[in-house]
Design a protein around this nucleic acid. Structure first.
Lengths: 109, 109
DNA sequence: CGATTAAATGGTAGAACGGCCATATAGCCA
DNA sequence: TGGCTATATGGCCGTTCTACCATTTAATCG
């Protein structure tokens, strides 16, 4: 029995949406900074070193993807990581980078 | 002691390059299809259902990121996954999707 | 209330992406 | 050699992304 292609397409589209949300240096940086420790937008803005509005929009992307959630406290908004599966992601990315380095070194000989 | 920000920036840029290479439905589909089984471009083209040139370019992206490698055999080119750490990636993505579904269902009440 | 501060939103310009078509390249075979 | 097939590449165009600036919104505090 063949799987329904429509469903598969939607499945990969959904996956891609998540991956896309992570596919930016600033967002990765924030994601890592937010693991196990919530931070306000002002702190993240300082960390990233971009305009506050830019950071706010990046956070909206992460939130929309379901990767982070926020909490309002007075004037400030604190963000934190919402999911618990990021380690696998980091390990994978690092694994690829390590692999690439190896390939690159092997190619130099 | 503070870490050098320049290096950190480059590190996150490198990570983002990998994540970006995966952040497309067709590329995710191919990546999964290529796990443990090499396939020619024609087969992948059929699988994805896009123009052959489009698929070829997607494959170039995956290759450039170091995620797949290729092997020429006669007129055909066979691609296969080059890294061994994709499981962590899939698990992470699926984890987020599951989490999102849960959140969504909880919100309906 | 008015001033101040944190964050979000709207607007916009430039860059990057993604699709297809047309074309080039390369290997195979008659 | 000429024709056929599998891939890759170049070009073009519409869409999306990303950054910043300007402005709005919301909460706090005189």
């Amino acid at each position: 029995m063949k799987l329904k292609p429509k469903h598969n397409r939607e499945r990969y589209a959904a996956r891609a949406r998540i991956a896309k949300a992570m596919a930016h240096p600033s967002r990765l940086l924030m994601l890592e900074a937010l693991e196990g420790k919530e931070r306000c937008v002002c702190e993240l803005t300082e960390l990233v070193g971009a305009d506050q509005s830019t950071v706010s929009k990046h956070l909206a992307v992460l939130k929309q993807a379901g990767l982070v959630e926020d909490r309002k406290e007075g004037v400030m908004v604190f963000y934190r990581v919402k999911v618990c599966c990021l380690k696998g992601f980091w390990d994978c990315i690092e694994g690829v980078l390590t692999e690439n380095l190896k390939t690159q070194q092997a190619a130099m000989r």
